[in-house]
Write a protein that binds this DNA or RNA. Structure first.
Lengths: 176, 176
DNA sequence: ACAAATAGCTATAGATCATAACAAAATGAA
DNA sequence: TTCATTTTGTTATGATCTATAGCTATTTGT
């Protein structure tokens, strides 16, 4: 399964692999994310959830009567993408779109009892999944990692970010 | 500017946001990766590169005469996906597929002078991009992050199978 | 009253990754 | 040698997540 060394003469490629790429945070980030994401997908699949639907369900459970735009902002995704996610949660009856008395445009999202139950179970499953994948890190190191990661995407806005990007920045806000 | 507060009476949703999701390393990983990936894509675009093609170009530059399967293994992607990436690099003349004397199945990948030049420039651009996005982290913290991340995807194989490399690397092969 | 902003929605596309199946070539064993 | 197996590159296809543009209905603000 590892690479087969050329047994013949051949040119004997001196492999240094991805050593130089490793200097980039983004590269290691990508590799680690890919591993975790694939396994999370795997363990969520039997529950009928994907990563995006689990995240949305979790936020909705924790923030009753949330609007779809608020959900989009919390998860840093586009409003348009929340629609299909919400659909996927509403269809099996995990959440419900309730009308808001004073605003007929928006919906108040609320998890159903089944939704809350599934969320609980999915959370357990995901905690087991992280414990399985992160055995190489202590609890302190995991928290440290979370803190470091959070400082990355926290600084996207606070560090004079959103104001001076006329175009081509990370878009979460439309100052237009 | 986190959440938009409802201006009217409304139900005043008490927003706790994604606090519970933040307990998962995977969630913060995803957010941070998404930010970095989007910006990396943006800065690579004018050079005609995507993240996947840059990564492949970098590995090919550092490992002359690499085979496509080896590239796949180093980058942890499927062989089938290397094909289109290699195509995208070969078409503008950044790399070339050379025939291998003793094995007519495989190709020896080698970067052209233009490929090496573009790789150098793209690397500078990406370093600037990381310096811009990671201002919240010191150099030591960035290295710490890389180390922590690497321990995640390093442990993916030592878990049960691949009793190969104790040394931090990935699974390549034995140079001997 | 009416322009502007907001909420949700549809359609579509790009990027990454995985899987299955295939042909040509190399390998290994009978 | 023959022949089954493995390896290499390849094609086709689908899943996931994300972004963009444009649309309708509603609300807001002047």
């Amino acid at each position: 399964m590892a690479l087969r060394v050329v047994k013949e003469a051949e040119q004997e490629v001196p492999v240094i692999g991805d050593r130089n790429l490793r200097g980039f945070v983004g590269y290691s980030l990508k590799r680690a994310y890919h591993l975790i994401q694939a396994d999370a997908m795997r363990v969520l699949d039997p529950l009928g959830l994907r990563i995006s639907t689990y995240s949305a369900l979790a936020v909705i459970c924790d923030n009753p009567d949330l609007r779809q735009s608020q959900l989009a902002e919390i998860l840093s995704i586009e409003r348009s993408n929340t629609v299909v996610i919400i659909d996927a949660l509403e269809q099996p009856g995990l959440i419900a779109r309730h009308r808001v008395p004073n605003d007929r445009r928006s919906y108040a999202l609320r998890a159903t009892p089944q939704g809350r139950r599934l969320h609980k179970e999915a959370t357990r499953v995901l905690e087991a999944h992280e414990n399985r994948l992160l055995t190489a890190l202590s609890a302190e190191e995991r928290q440290l990692m979370i803190d470091l990661l959070r400082r990355i995407d926290g600084s996207a806005f606070s560090e004079q970010g959103a104001a001076d990007h006329p175009e081509g920045g990370h878009r979460h806000e439309r100052p237009d």
